Amino acid sequence: MPRYALLIEYDGGPFSGWQAQADQPSVQQAIETALGRLDPGFAAGARIGAAGRTDAGVHATGQVVHADLERDWEPFRLTEALNYHLKPAPVAILAAARVMDDFHARFSAIERRYCFRLIARRAPLTHERGSVWRVRNPLDADAMREGASHLIGNHDFTTFRSSICQARSPVKTLDQIEIEEREIPFGREYLFRLRARSFLHNQVRSIVGTLERVGAGSWHPEQVADALAARDRAVCGPVCPPYGLYLTGVGYPADPFCP
């Protein structure tokens, strides 16, 4: 059976998350239903594997999955057919590629990239409501960068993971946190870009929520280091809402979508 990698974009708002659930809409189920209209194996209940299981409300611009199909598809035609059958769900297949049988969307990945969008402005959001977190007052980006610097590297991130996280170890290596500040009409936007081989459950949202407290002046940047060292979920800052978070990319030793 030929194996394909799919590059996927979706709005997580209408879904209960990535993972298929019996009585709730999920991104996985939407894609498998579309595949079921094209492939006998998925019509009989085959499953896809994903690089990351995003939570309810979390979006993606670069999710990657793999699927084993009975039919040998030309990748462009597979992309077009899937997008037709995904309508009207807010899910799009950006690209498809034939890959080796040992390619695995999750276990072959060597890095994952997330972006969190935060807007500071007095007025409520209209067009971007549900796709960005709004706070009322501007933040100190330099203070947030100073706080974030304490999190780069290999650490025990117990403080910054969900109490229901199923990872075997809280130790992760955070390779990058970039914080971009830019002016927008009547406010400012802050983009938090994080990169690591893998993340713990709620790690990104816990980090961004804590850094927002630093930017607002409620925390000193050094308190981020203290919270990390405490290895205690109770001393974490607030977990920010899911709808500002995007899975923007997954890295592999060889890009399956590179021509």
Score class of each variant (00 low, 15 high):
88 P>A: 02
72 D>P: 11
94 L>K: 13
110 I>H: 08
148 A>W: 02
128 E>N: 14
169 S>M: 07
119 I>Y: 03
119 I>T: 11
67 A>R: 12
93 I>W: 03
139 L>G: 03
156 D>Q: 10
129 R>Y: 14
79 T>C: 12
152 I>T: 10
97 A>Y: 00
124 P>E: 09
93 I>F: 01
106 R>G: 01
148 A>R: 03
63 Q>G: 04
87 K>Q: 11
103 F>C: 03
76 F>W: 15
61 T>K: 04
128 E>I: 08
138 P>R: 03
92 A>N: 02
66 H>I: 09
139 L>A: 04
98 R>S: 13
81 A>L: 02
117 R>N: 09
170 P>D: 09
134 R>F: 06
87 K>I: 15
78 L>T: 04
174 L>M: 05
134 R>L: 09
176 Q>D: 12
72 D>L: 08
168 R>E: 13
135 V>T: 13
107 F>T: 11
174 L>W: 07
111 E>D: 10
165 C>R: 13
70 E>W: 08
129 R>H: 08
128 E>F: 14
123 A>Y: 14
62 G>V: 05
174 L>T: 01
150 H>Q: 15
164 I>C: 10
118 L>H: 00
87 K>R: 15
80 E>V: 12
103 F>H: 02
168 R>Y: 11
137 N>G: 14
90 P>L: 12
177 I>R: 09
131 S>Y: 15
128 E>R: 14
73 W>C: 01
136 R>V: 10
177 I>H: 00
132 V>W: 03
100 M>Y: 11
176 Q>I: 08
68 D>E: 11
171 V>Q: 10
176 Q>T: 11
143 A>Q: 04
93 I>C: 07
137 N>M: 13
168 R>F: 07
103 F>K: 05
137 N>Y: 15
82 L>Q: 07
98 R>Q: 10
151 L>F: 00
162 S>T: 10
63 Q>D: 00
159 T>A: 04
120 A>D: 01
81 A>G: 04
146 E>R: 13
83 N>M: 05
163 S>D: 12
102 D>P: 03
134 R>T: 03
120 A>Q: 01
61 T>M: 06
76 F>L: 15
163 S>P: 03
100 M>P: 10
64 V>M: 10
64 V>E: 07
150 H>N: 07
174 L>E: 00
73 W>H: 02
119 I>F: 05
101 D>P: 11
102 D>R: 13
121 R>D: 11
141 A>T: 09
102 D>G: 05
84 Y>P: 01
73 W>L: 01
78 L>F: 01
148 A>E: 07
129 R>C: 06
110 I>M: 09
174 L>R: 00
78 L>W: 03
58 V>M: 05
106 R>T: 05
112 R>V: 05
75 P>E: 03
124 P>C: 04
76 F>T: 15
72 D>F: 06
72 D>C: 04
160 F>R: 12
88 P>K: 01
143 A>K: 04
150 H>E: 14
136 R>Y: 12
79 T>D: 04
70 E>Y: 09
77 R>I: 12
130 G>Q: 07
80 E>W: 13
112 R>P: 01
82 L>K: 07
121 R>Y: 12
142 D>M: 15
164 I>F: 15
146 E>P: 08
130 G>I: 08
117 R>M: 11
96 A>S: 09
78 L>C: 05
